[in-house]
Every structure is written in structure tokens, then in C-alpha cells.
Design a protein around this nucleic acid. Structure first.
Length: 537
DNA sequence: TACATACAC
DNA sequence: GATGGTGTATGTA
């Protein structure tokens, strides 16, 4: 076990990186990180959670050490050869660079928090977060100034910001708003979306649209007018959805919405709506402004957006002018490379904490540095990984939006407080099996692999899986398998948590590739004790 | 196929 | 007092 000294000295920096404030998020620039980290560490140090993080951190450090040893064994001859090979590949990629698509990534600002603030005016101007004392899903920008952010436990957030108001999650509400946002995009283009994040591919020019089609009337506070206008807006949307949305790059007809002085105030006699109106242009930028305008009119919430030649860049761009802003990378190689140059790799979707740290050990922080080290990376990482890195450093990414494929797994997982008796664990397992069975039935799916996931009080996680020859889907079938998996673990280790998973189904039609079912139970007292009892027996 | 890791949201 | 839940991909054995 680690001595206290080792813990406090050797890994201090590492742990701050792992446990301290992650400010890689909009609205968290220029915070007093040191002060915030002090509070976070004060709240977490000595906890079981902290102990497990320490352990995981050591594993990452070991990985890095292995990598560095491997690096030390690389000869300059090997490096030269790698350089040639990588550059040949890079040239091919360059040759295939496609700047002809326009990808838009729309991202709602502090989504859950914004919904809660909208629905409860008392929360306006106050620091709020959505979630529980155990875990927060998101926070508003006010709270972010205190270092309060998503994935932080509420009790720690409270220490950072004692006045923080924590609102419980209302998934049903977010689902409704999420759908409304989807409708705002539907007429625009081909679009695919996950939760409140939306990617949209603008496809066809709309330069021949009459201005009337691109005109919107601003909602006002007046309730009667608002209702009229809403009706009108709805009818416009209906019209839009009946035709493809078109655009091409051309100067905007008007300034951005949201700035009253720039709003067009023409009379609309024909429509008998004497209100302010706004007309959007036909460029990509204008279309995106229009999308964001529609979202705001429909939901009273703001969204940010990125416009770029591929999905990787569009995603990064959507964060650049958050909240309530947008950013475009023009479709030229130069614009792309200029944008990429000093961009920290951590900003790219898919580069997380661990990858960031490993690359940092190689002196890589920015995309330009990622490119410089391309030969070395090809020798240290798997083909999949270095290809991925190379794409990033060239500013390349997917230029089309994949349709949602069929699901590959399904799971249910829950963390519990205290379960002392094995029989209680079995019955909880059965409950989860029942839930999964229902979920499977809802989608008409079946699976072949059942996985049980266990987590003990020290946050150690293990998974145990079993694949059967024919598909299963009922509570009884699944529980029979899960129970066996669980039994082995309880008997041997006295573990407290479990999970079940299932994969691959050959049925056609209503079928599922796989599903997963999980449970986690926590038992504060048990592990050591139980293990001892087992041994003594 | 089994298991662990990393990542996103 | 207290550190989530769901899903995907990948590496390795």
C-alpha cells in the first residue's frame, strides 16, 4: 500500500489533473483554479473514491512508463522509415480531402439547467445545477464561475458554491424540449442527433427562395400577439418542412437576430401582423442563424453552433462561441489548418483525460505538435489510434452523417447504498433482470450474452459475462444466467454489485444485435469481512 | 468470447 | 452522508 508520503508527493500533480477541476468547458475560463482545487481535494481526500482514483492513476502512469521505454528503444533508422510510411499515408489522405460538404453542429447551451431556469423564473440569476447531492448533470454559467460543472458530485459543488441551488432531473421535460429542437432542424437538411446535440448537414442551395420564405416575426411579450405569431411561425415551419432547405454562400440579407437595432421593421399588412420581422440570408452562416433563431422562438432557449467541412471540426466550432454563438471554419485547407494549429488536442471529441496525459508525456499538447510527432506515434500506438491521430492533425473528419445504426446492447445499472445479505443482492439482481426484460420487449429484441457488472464499496469494478447458444429475453431466462454469474462472485469474493449483458441476435426483423443488463450494489461493511469469513470456513 | 479501459453526454 | 447511467469502440488474451 502507498505511504502517505508517496500519496501526497509523487502523485500530487497527477491527482490534481485527475480529480481537480476540469475546466475544458465553455464558461470556465479564467477561474481561480488553485483555490477551487484546494476545496475539491479537501472534500475528496481520504475517501474510498479517492483511493480508487489513486489506484487508477498509477495504472495510467505505468502505461506511460511502458510507452516511454518503448520509445527509448526506437532507433533513428526505424523512425526514418516510419516517417516515410506515415507521410505517404498522409499524402493520400490529403489527396482525398473533401471540403465540399457543410456540416453544422448545434449544441444547446447548458441544456438541462436552461430548461429549469426557463420554467422557474426564481432561478434566474442564481447559480444552479441539475442533478443531486451525489451527482450533477450540468450547471448554468453562473455556477460555472464557482467551478461547479457536470459530472461533479453535488456535495462538493456545494462547498465550492454554498448558495448553489440543485434542481432534480426532469428527463420527461428535456425529452419534450429535445423533440422541439429537432423539429426546428427537420426542414433544414439531413440531420442526425443525439439527445440535445444535433449535427446537421446542409445540402442544397436555396438562393432562389423568395424573401418571404426566409422571413420570421419576432415574438413579443404581448400574449395575444405572441399566440398569433406563434401560429404564423408554425405555418412557416410547416411550409419549410414541405420543401428542402437550400442555401449557398452569399451575403446575408440582414444582421443576426437577437439584436433589436438590427431587426427589420417592415410592415406586414398582408399578414396583418405589424410586428418586427427578420429575414435570413442564404449563406450557411445565415441558415445556421435561422436555425438558432427558430430554436429560441420555439423553446426560449439558446443554442450554439459550429459550421465546418467535417463533423470533427464542426463539433469543436460549436464550443468556440458558446453560449448563444456560432463559429464557422470556411471550406479551405488554409482555414482548416489555421484553426487546428494551436488547438489543444483535448478539445477534440475522443481525446479524453488518459489520452491527453499519454500524449502530453510525448510533449504533445496541440494539434500542430500531434502532426510533428506523427512518425513516433505510428510506432507507439495501434494502427487505429495513429490513423485517428493523423486525421485529427490534418483537420480531417467525417464528411457525412451516419444514420443511426441498430443498437448493440442494452443495460440497466444501479448503485445502491448498503446490501448486507446475499439474498438481497439476488433479489435486486432479479429486479434489474425484470427491467431489462421489459426494455427488451419494448423494442422487440433478444440477446445472447448476459454480463454482470459488480462494484464494491471501494469502487473497484469487475464484469462477468456468459454467452448462451440461443437468444434469451425474459426475466426468468436472464436471471437464471445472471444469478449464476453473481453466485460465483459472491461465493469467492463477497462482492456487492453486479451487472448483466447480452449480445448478438440472429433473428431478422425485430431483432437486436446485443443487450446488456447491469446492476451495481454497494455494501459499506461487507467486503473484507465476508472474505475473511470465507477464508476461515 | 471474456474482460478491462477509454470516452461521450 | 454522499462520486451516475447508458452506450460504443478498442486492445488483449
Amino acid at each position: 500500500m502507498d505511504s502517505t508520503k508517496e500519496t501526497s508527493n509523487t502523485y500530487k500533480e497527477d491527482l490534481l489533473l485527475r480529480m481537480g477541476l476540469n475546466d475544458n468547458k465553455a464558461g470556465m475560463e479564467g477561474l481561480d483554479k488553485e483555490k477551487i482545487n484546494k476545496i475539491i481535494m479537501g472534500a475528496t481526500k481520504g475517501s474510498r473514491f479517492y483511493g480508487n482514483e489513486l489506484k487508477k492513476e498509477k495504472q495510467v502512469n505505468q502505461r506511460i512508463e511502458n510507452m516511454m521505454q518503448q520509445k527509448a528503444r526506437i532507433t533513428s533508422q526505424q523512425l526514418r522509415e516510419a516517417q516515410l510510411q506515415v507521410d505517404r499515408f498522409a499524402m493520400e489522405l490529403e489527396h482525398c480531402r473533401d471540403l465540399s460538404n457543410t456540416i453544422v453542429h448545434v449544441d444547446m447551451d447548458a441544456f438541462y439547467a436552461a430548461v429549469e431556469m426557463r420554467d422557474n423564473p426564481e432561478l434566474k440569476d442564481k447559480p444552479i445545477a441539475v442533478g443531486s447531492m451525489s451527482m450533477l448533470s450540468t450547471s448554468n454559467y453562473h455556477a460555472r464561475r464557482f467551478g461547479v460543472r457536470a459530472a461533479m458530485p453535488g456535495f462538493i459543488a456545494k462547498r465550492l458554491c454554498p448558495h448553489l441551488i440543485i434542481v432534480p432531473l426532469n428527463f420527461d421535460k428535456y425529452r419534450v424540449v429535445s423533440k422541439q429542437v429537432g423539429i426546428c432542424l427537420a426542414p433544414t437538411s439531413i440531420c442526425s442527433w443525439v439527445s440535445c446535440r444535433i449535427r446537421s448537414q446542409l445540402q442544397m442551395p436555396r438562393q432562389d427562395w423568395p424573401e418571404e420564405r426566409r422571413r420570421y416575426f419576432i415574438k413579443t411579450g404581448n400574449s395575444k400577439t405572441t399566440s398569433e405569431l406563434t401560429t404564423y411561425l408554425t405555418s412557416i415551419e410547416y411550409e419549410l418542412s414541405a420543401s428542402p432547405l437550400l442555401f449557398e454562400d452569399s451575403p446575408p440579407d440582414l444582421q443576426p437576430p437577437g439584436n433589436p437595432s438590427q431587426v427589420n421593421c417592415k410592415e406586414q399588412n398582408k399578414l396583418q401582423i405589424p410586428q418586427k420581422s427578420v429575414v435570413f440570408g442564404t449563406s450557411a452562416e445565415e441558415v445556421v442563424k435561422e436555425i438558432r433563431f427558430r430554436i429560441e422562438q420555439k423553446t426560449t432557449l439558446t443554442a450554439s453552433a459550429g459550421i465546418a467541412p467535417n463533423t470533427m471540426l464542426a463539433k469543436v466550432c460549436s464550443d468556440k462561441n458558446k453560449p448563444n454563438g456560432q463559429y464557422q471554419i470556411l471550406p479551405s485547407r488554409q482555414a482548416v489548418m489555421e484553426f487546428i494549429k494551436d488547438l489543444p488536442i483535448r478539445k477534440i471529441s475522443g481525446i479524453g483525460k488518459v489520452t491527453e496525459k499519454m500524449l502530453k508525456a510525448l510533449g504533445i499538447i496541440t494539434c500542430a505538435e500531434l502532426y510533428q510527432q506523427r512518425a513516433l506515434l505510428s510506432l507507439l500506438f495501434s494502427e487505429t489510434s495513429w490513423h485517428y491521430f493523423l486525421h485529427i492533425s490534418l483537420g480531417l473528419g467525417s464528411t457525412h452523417l451516419a444514420r443511426d445504426g441498430e443498437r448493440k446492447s442494452m443495460s440497466v445499472e444501479r448503485t445502491f447504498n448498503e446490501i448486507n445479505k446475499a439474498e438481497d443482492q439476488y433479489s435486486l439482481c432479479q429486479e434489474l433482470c425484470s427491467e431489462i426484460a421489459q426494455d427488451l420487449q419494448k423494442e422487440g429484441l433478444k440477446g445472447r450474452t448476459v454480463t454482470v457488472k459488480l462494484k464494491n464499496v471501494n469502487f473497484e469494478v469487475k464484469t462477468r459475462a456468459s454467452t448462451v447458444s440461443s437468444v434469451v429475453s425474459t426475466e426468468e431466462e436472464i436471471f437464471a444466467i445472471a444469478k449464476e454469474l453473481l453466485r460465483t462472485e459472491i461465493d469467492v469474493f463477497g462482492y456487492l454489485v453486479f451487472l448483466v449483458k447480452q449480445t448478438k441476435n440472429t433473428n431478422k426483423g425485430a431483432s437486436l444485435a446485443s443487450y446488456r443488463l447491469g446492476t451495481k450494489l454497494c455494501q459499506p461493511l461487507g467486503v473484507q469481512e465476508r472474505r475473511l469469513i470465507k477464508i476461515s470456513v
